[in-house]
Write a protein that binds this DNA or RNA. Structure first.
Lengths: 252, 252
DNA sequence: TCCTCCGTTCTGTAATAGTGAATAATGTTT
DNA sequence: AAACATTATTCACTATTACAGAACGGAGGA
């Protein structure tokens, strides 16, 4: 973060909140102060202020803190004003139903930024339901990300491709040249494939969503196990997702 | 808000963010400074800091600001750690399917605090899809709120019932005595009714969700138009929602 | 019982948040 | 087209307050 922000204490406070992640949802004062190299009482002052406002909560038993529910109010306002939530959700739902896979919509926002997911209406899902809005993932190892890379402005893609590419599985593409090859392929055929590059056993098909003026708007994907996203169904899946992307474009 | 917070500048900054609501999602520096009686440059410094961190965004055309997508990251972490999201969602989904109405789950958190909603799987919904997490509503005019009032600790209910009760429709209960009567009725029959008290034409059935030790945990509701939530279907709806509440209780 | 770790409280001071006026850029009125 | 009103933005000073550091009290383990 540029240290040229106007209100440094606010930068600090928000960084305290950012310590609370899916991996570490419960944190103590000392842990945070060590991680951010801040004074304990400084962190305490910040967190107790957040707590009074409902943006942090303290477990009375352990004394540890976690994020407060009032943060959800912001997400509600954002969702209300995204404008396209209904359109995208309907299209995702229809694709999920047709294909029997989970479908996602994400935008490009520093990372792959998930906004919506839809689940097929089977009685017992294999996948745990979770609201996906706000989840993020890297570009280089997801079908959504690679679809975005192939259709975003060249300069932006170059910056991302040249950046760090963490390995998650043994199929994760970590070589720049190989990633470019994959991107070219994606561009030419109009869809991307994630061959378990982010998570073992999960295969995805990604399709970019473009605006009327061919600008990258986001991407949709279908994600499933190897036995669901099979080679012999690939054509069907690609077709359905391209249709979904087109529907969103038309109705934006 | 108690002015006895530890970091006053943080209180101020968060109040700036709180100005952005569903009703006023786009705000200019001047508007905010007037509303909060703060100096313009003060608001500017705060908002530009939020912007650098992705918690606010500025419309390049109008110069106005709105909430930034990074706030969704917090909601994702919260959702991931609520623990019961899968349980509640499945139960809501099942009830929505059975009844053909929207179903909600909310907790009591200063207000009726919505967490989950589920929609019946009809092809064309009458209701616009929206993710409800973070939405709030008053106690006195919602089925969820009245179900909560009837089963929360007496002292807390008394404080709420004695508080302000805004009128939304001509059936909104604004008299304390009348509200108590409704609460008693709700307690005795185990469910609450919202007879278009919050929104014209919307009728709801609310049922409290209690923990194993009979503590109030939250509430579920079924909500629909007058032609959906009809008197002759009331028994069925109440039964289904009581079942849903019981299911959540058992699986918590 | 001692020790260690935690969250919490307190006070002085060094840092900075915030004031107010000036600027630049926009759109609106005359 | 000119004058005006209104906007976001910048800047420098200073009064405010955020913060460091040390000390406290309670919980948990040895």
């Amino acid at each position: 973060m540029e240290d040229e922000v106007k209100v440094k204490s606010l930068l600090k406070a928000m960084k305290v909140l950012e310590c609370f992640t899916s991996e570490t949802p419960d944190l103590g004062i000392t842990q945070i102060s060590e991680r951010l190299e801040l004074n304990k009482s400084n962190v305490y002052n910040i967190l107790s202020t957040f707590e009074k406002m409902g943006y942090a909560e303290q477990d009375s038993a352990t004394g540890k803190y976690h994020l407060g529910l009032n943060l959800l109010k912001f997400s509600y306002v954002i969702n209300e004003n995204l404008g396209y939530q209904r359109i995208v959700y309907d299209v995702l739902q229809e694709a999920a139903r047709k294909l029997g896979t989970v479908t996602y919509f994400a935008i490009s926002h520093s990372q792959v930024f998930y906004l919506y997911s839809a689940y097929p209406p089977t009685a017992n899902y294999d996948f745990p339901f979770r609201s996906i809005a706000g989840a993020t993932a890297p570009y280089h190892c997801t079908s959504l990300g690679k679809a975005m890379l192939a259709f975003m402005p060249r300069a932006e893609a170059e910056r991302i491709v040249a950046g760090p590419k963490e390995r998650f599985t043994n199929t994760t593409i970590t070589e720049e040249a190989e990633l470019w090859k994959d991107i070219e392929l994606t561009r030419s055929r109009g869809y991307s494939l994630d061959e378990c590059e982010h998570e073992y056993g999960v295969r995805c098909v990604g399709v970019p969503v473009l605006t009327a003026r061919a600008q990258l708007f986001g991407a949709v994907s279908a994600s499933g196990s190897l036995s669901t996203v099979r080679d012999d169904r690939l054509e069907e899946i690609v077709h359905t997702m391209k249709e979904a992307a087109f529907c969103i474009k038309e109705r934006l």
